[in-house]
Write a protein that binds this DNA or RNA. Sequence first.
DNA 1: TTCCAGGGGAACG
DNA 2: CGTTCCCATGGA
Length: 233
Amino acid sequence: MLAAPGTKALRGVVETYLRAGDNIRDIQSALSKDRLLARGMERLRGLRIVKMDEWECLVSYVLATYANIPRITRMIDAISCRYGDEIACGVHAFPSRPQLSEARENDLRRLGLGYRASYVKELCETVDEGELDRMKSLSYDDLRSELLGLPGVGNKVADCVSLFGFGRLEAFPVDVWIKKALLRLYSREGTYRALREFAQERFGRYAGYAQEYLFYNERAGSKEGTCAFRGRG
DNA sequence: TTCCAGGGGAACG
DNA sequence: CGTTCCCATGGA
């Protein structure tokens, strides 16, 4: 259901899904204890972490494994178009778990999911709405380890789902761009665990925002000369 | 612990 | 064109 403009419902959507409650000034102020982050963060004041629906987030990040953004978009559009409610002319919502459960593995394969089809199929069978609801009350550590037990969910996906789906701002997903950033700016490399623990120690409860600033900056820097943070100098 | 399938397109030279 | 890389996981 869509929220009509100017209504209380729309304000609620903005409040929840655009995380209107996040005080960016406070968050940036806390993160600016890190001198490197402090230098470039200000120009990224408009950057927000969104609060995604837990189910949509889980499936989306499982689909995102070893795919680039255009392809991820295509896969999500394909399953939404085929299994999700039409919420406006030609616009489809992400399918609920019961809706997506209608799909057979081969149907999903034909929609271009590749080997990810079996993970999505298994997620439909093993994760119900009540389970996701129950997980909302877990600590980050417990949430993380429960997510890790799900098919198609490893370290990186578990942290993305914790951050974007369950709104745990202390989560710090490490992908190839973050690895590059940590090496370039902090001379850090190592296992997933080591990098995550380094970040959590350094950035604390807003590590997720730090991750977004580093991620955005690193991608921008690889394209133009728009890199906001640089190492030393 | 390390290796590689699986999968398809985009970006690169 | 052919290569390499991409918001990795799982199983050997």
